[in-house]
């Protein structure tokens, strides 16, 4: 219990430090965040245009399609400040040979890596996601308690998937030093999670549901709000948990390898 309290207070301090760092260049910070917020609103732009031109994604009303994308935005917006910088800081520390400093901190190295990488520079994206979600979900209020609970559960699965991916990419950074493009792979993969999975057919649909269940980042939790969940979503939760476990294990393994190889 005590160690959990300690972990929270450490995490809190890391967030404080991240905020102080971001606030050091206030003007640029606010400006960048505003742009980022606006930029995050681009995600549903294509959907808006499709419906504005009188067309539709088959089986989905405009607001349903928008909700799926809003959930995606909320999910990625939430994961960005908490997880994304793990990749960048790992890359930077490995390249500069300062990963040692992280290992000098007591406690779990994975925890220190994640807590120490809180990124305030993604706050705009989180705000954009939250705003869009509030707007899209309001259409379907009141959401029944069961639906909301199911939504929360599926949403959490998406977060686990995201965490797993980030830890895996960070692990890759120990080997593939200096590749600043690793996040583009992540973006390309999650791109398949931005739209209702019904647009995909055959193997591709199975892949985004069960192999790398990116559908969990937006579409599946959204269906919980719409009351249209199916059994396959429960199955898709399994790989999400596996991703998180595997990502954690791989990242830990790479830290240990770093310790034995000496960078």
């Amino acid at each position: 219990m005590n160690s959990i309290r300690l972990a929270f207070s450490v995490y809190g301090q890391y967030i404080r430090v991240a905020f102080a760092s971001a606030a050091a260049y206030r003007l640029d910070f606010f400006f960048t965040q505003t742009v980022m917020l606006a930029g995050s609103l681009l995600i549903p732009l294509l959907t808006v245009l499709i419906y504005a031109n009188g067309e539709a994604i088959p089986g989905w009303t405009f607001h349903e399609a928008l909700l799926a994308q809003a959930v995606f935005m909320l999910s990625s917006g939430l994961c960005a400040p908490f997880f994304h910088n793990v990749v960048w800081t790992t890359m930077e520390r490995v390249r500069e040979g300062t990963y040692d400093l992280l290992l000098l901190k007591p406690g779990s190295a994975v925890f220190t890596a994640v807590a120490g990488s809180f990124g305030f520079e993604y706050i705009g994206q989180l705000c954009g996601g939250a705003a869009m979600f509030a707007y899209a979900a309001a259409r379907f209020a009141p959401i029944p308690a069961g639906g909301a609970a199911l939504f929360a559960l599926l949403f959490l699965m998406g977060v686990l998937l995201n965490l797993g991916c980030v830890l895996m990419m960070s692990a890759v950074c120990f080997k593939w030093v200096g590749n600043s493009r690793v996040f583009e792979i992540y973006d390309a993969v999650t791109l398949f999670g931005r739209y209702p999975v019904t647009i995909f057919t055959g193997a591709l649909r199975a892949a985004v549901t069960y192999v790398i269940p990116v559908a969990m980042l937006g579409f599946f939790p959204a269906t919980a709000i719409l009351g249209r969940t199916t059994a396959q979503m429960a199955v898709a939760a399994v790989p999400c948990v596996l991703f998180a476990i595997f990502g954690y294990g791989l990242f830990r393994h790479m830290i240990q390898r770093y310790q034995s190889a000496g960078g």
Binding site: A24, M36, L42, A80, W88, G119, S180, F183
Partner: peptide, 19 residues
Amino acid sequence: PSPNLSENSNVETPRRVSA
């Protein structure tokens, strides 16, 4: 912030890691 800005993410951008 390009990875999140554009869907067309095949554009290579140098990125600053932290302030």
